[in-house]
């Protein structure tokens, strides 16, 4: 798994072209009957398409007309709320698709307990990501608002999807790796990929800060926040590509059988 992740990270770095192509990933799945059945069996495709579409829109909107300036202070709550909405919509879509698959075991959870756990974990995660921003070199005494906003955004992009999908208590598992022989659910793999890609996006974004270009988008949280969003977007796109490869394989296997 580790190797795969590493590869995926490298691929993502090079895949700006993929990004452009994948804005209309539905093109490939022309036969509609096929989409219906396959999509229902694998309920991850449509949510991913939806969320990557939304994040692409958000990303482009941020770059347009200096909207990235919103990321500096509390105005960025708009963006964070958008992210939350996207994630929840994605989860709703996903759970709807799951519910349509008849013979699926549905773990029952108390919604109130779940919500409480979610809120607690979100608050904790904001604190932790604030701490980590400081540890990785964010200013301690100045620019607290910027750092706070950044950590809320990081929480929204990394922790929230995982917490919604898999429950809050699984979060430490993001920090580990598995032997290839051990079982890992696809959702879990995706969340791990998402975690790494998003963080890496943040770090890559930070690479432009030291330059002495004196531009306004080099101020502290902007490149990192944009990097986070781009990383998250790429993680989603990567999942779609993986899905396509999988179905292609299945398709070709079926063909060969006949």
């Amino acid at each position: 798994m580790a190797k795969k992740n590493v590869r995926s990270v490298i691929k993502k770095l090079e895949s700006s072209s993929v990004l452009i192509n994948s804005s209309n990933p539905t093109e490939y799945k022309a036969p509609s009957a096929f989409i219906q059945t396959e999509a229902n069996k694998d309920p991850e495709l449509i949510p991913h398409c939806f969320s990557s579409f939304c994040y692409l829109g958000l990303f482009v909107w941020l770059l347009l007309d200096r909207n990235y300036n919103l990321l500096i202070d509390r105005n960025s709550m708009i963006i964070i709320v958008t992210c939350y909405t996207i994630e929840f919509a994605k989860f709703a879509c996903h759970s709807y698709l799951v519910s349509r698959i008849t013979n699926q075991i549905k773990p029952k959870t108390n919604p109130i307990f779940w919500a409480l756990q979610f809120i607690v974990s979100t608050v904790l995660a904001v604190g932790v990501s604030y701490l980590f921003s400081i540890l990785f070199g964010a200013p301690l005494t100045t620019k607290q608002e910027q750092t706070f906003v950044f950590s809320v955004l990081a929480t929204a992009l990394i922790i929230t999807p995982t917490a919604i999908q898999l429950g809050s208590s699984i979060l430490p598992l993001l920090l580990t790796d598995c032997f290839e022989t051990e079982f890992d659910s696809t959702v879990e793999v995706f969340e791990k990929n998402n975690f790494r890609a998003t963080i890496l996006g943040g770090f890559i974004g930070a690479a432009v800060i030291p330059f002495d270009w004196e531009t306004e988008w080099q101020r502290w949280p902007i490149p990192c926040s944009v990097g986070l969003i781009a990383g998250h977007l790429l993680a989603n796109v990567y999942e779609i590509i993986c899905w396509q490869f999988k179905t292609l394989k299945k398709y070709s296997v079926k063909k060969n059988k006949f």
């Binding site: 773990p107 208590s169 993001l174 790796d177 079982f183």
Partner: peptide, 27 residues
């Protein structure tokens, strides 16, 4: 640190009825 490999996943997911419940205490 992130590459740290879990030794035995089963001990982490001790609850067999709810397979997704990860035991935080154990971690």
């Amino acid at each position: 640190v992130v590459r740290f490999k879990l030794e035995n996943r089963k001990t982490w997911f001790r609850n067999k009825i709810k397979p997704k419940n990860f035991s935080l205490k154990h971690w």
